[in-house]
Design a protein around this nucleic acid. Sequence first.
RNA 1: GGCGGCGUAGCUCAGGUGGUCAGAGCAUACGGUUCAUACCCGUAGUGUCGCUGGUUCGAGUCCAGCCGCCGCUACCA
Length: 635
Amino acid sequence: MTRPTYYITTPIYYPSNRLHIGHAYTTVAADAVARFKRLQGCDVWFLTGTDEHGRKIEERAAQEGKTPREFVDPVVAGIKELWQLLHIRYDDFIRTTEERHVRVVQELFTRVHQSGDIYAGEYEGWYCVGCETYFTDTQAKDMDGHCREHDRPLERLRERAYFFRLSKYAGRLLRHIEDHPGFIRPESRRNEVLALIRGGLEDLCVSRTSFSWGIPVPFDPQHVIYVWFDALSNYLSGCGYLQDETRYGKYWPADLHLTGKEIVRFHAVIWPAILMAAGLALPKCVFGHGWLVLEGGKMSKTLGNVVDPVVLVGKYGLDAVRYFLLREVPFGADGIYHEEALIARSNADLANDLGNLVHRTLAMIKRFQHGIVAAPVRPEAIDDQFREAVLATPAAVEQAVDGLELSNALGAIGRLVSASNKYIDTTAPWAHFRDGNEGRLATIFYHLCEALRVVAVLLTPFLVETPGKIWQCLGLAGHPGEQGWESLTVWGFTRPGSRVQEGPPLFPRIETSRPAEGGPPPKIHVEPATVEIDDFRRLDLRIGTIVEAQAMPGAARLLRLVVDVGAARRQVVAGIAGEYEPGELAGRQVVVVVNLKPVKLRGVESQGMILTAGDGDRLRLLVPDGPVKEGSPVS
RNA sequence: GGCGGCGUAGCUCAGGUGGUCAGAGCAUACGGUUCAUACCCGUAGUGUCGCUGGUUCGAGUCCAGCCGCCGCUACCA
């Protein structure tokens, strides 16, 4: 009999920065699902990895005077360490720079090219050599065919590039999504994708010549294969495609691509279209989960309010963090992260309910029964009821996990924990101890041990340390993760006569020393993103004097300013119309970023940026404290 | 500005297709218990279900408008 297989993936992460709690969220969730499927006896392949090519890596490496490879290796090592810290049990870790992956990408690209769905096209537009960018016809017209920044005429350039016939697959894609309601989940994401496709798909440019850190197009090595083919196909190379046909045959198509909601469209539109073009089977499900949002704003690398999972684990312990991630937010929806909530969850669910349940049970067995679990005798109605609650729990958890409602899965386990606490209260073992009713005591504690046994096994996909501890406390042999699903469906695994072992509390309460009521919430511990002084020096900030200010027709928030910055006059479009009248601005000095790449705003070129400070309500110009000569540098 | 979503107890949120849908957990108060990590068990709540109209015998649940948030996007460079 062959076991069912289950192939689950996370996105591959871009190693240009350290990973934050958001990445951990996706990966911990995938790990939990993978562990659950293993518990159910599935033959699981859990893949994660890193997406290492592209311009950004190339630039970051250059900044540090390294080759891309030299830059990326230590970052990837750090990512692997993080997964180790979080006990992520992946089966394979794919790096897009690996030979096995390069081969797959080139083969896939060639194959789709040969079938005619990749064609050499031309990207044509007005090009400025200085900017290294193309401008559209209308942009070029607005600029009078001349780049102000570099003071040179735009050139009509054509560049060869390869395009993927994405448009051709719109119909098939639509049909597939309609015929397979579970293909994109949750449903809100599915609807978004449907709307996107119905809005029309354009062919996709799948090669670049503007950077070289990537996989060369095999039949045209001047070109580098762009991220779509490069990154998404890791799901194939990571399960043996073109290298281990047995493994590939076993696991592909993937059962679940777990992704953040922001990249669902790539996984649900581009990726399936590529697979169709290559004649390969489509994954069964793409699930886009929501985000963990920081209280008061989005987690953002540039804001530096990134929560470092390493710090959290050090402070609260791995299981508390994993529990919080999986329990706090309904998977699929966005959730707000704050450390207070983590503490509250840990104290209420883990310390008070679960930890205390284990502790009080063991203490009583030790005190009332010399630490020995005795054989039950004549269960009463209350015991039967409790037994049924215990045996019903695995199915509830299974149903939740199958629907990827991980929070509900933990909720179901939590309900069993509560039921156990209540069972203790209603059966009142201490009373039977006083009465010397040993049969009753034996029955009650046997039932409790069975409940804890089931809880321990059911927790193994979610928590990594606690289940083993409970197991040990119960005096059971082996590890709960090895018990198999069948062990959950039968009553009576606990052997009468086994000796329990009392240990320290599973989850000590986290004491918060915050003022009684209405105090400020504890500070979120964030690791500020630091920059080098050189990063700052890359900005050319100058003092300028506004010589002209005009409202812009049709643009409520924008003003067109002409600013004297010493060497020249700059036209700057600034979003301050709601705060300042054009008339009050002439003659005022401001701080201007003069080496900012020019950009068209509402058809008008902006050649810099005026610095302002805003608290959300008001926006004020940053001005020098006294007159300064135009063009003076700001440092 | 456009598109999408949301606004339900102090907090976080559940509430297919309109009629026990006014709920859960946490927090709070009170009671119980004493095996236990000041824990557990029970009870009690409070809510104009954002506002205003409308459809209906009847609307958190449908429609319109408004207000306020959020996301994406656009004119935040």
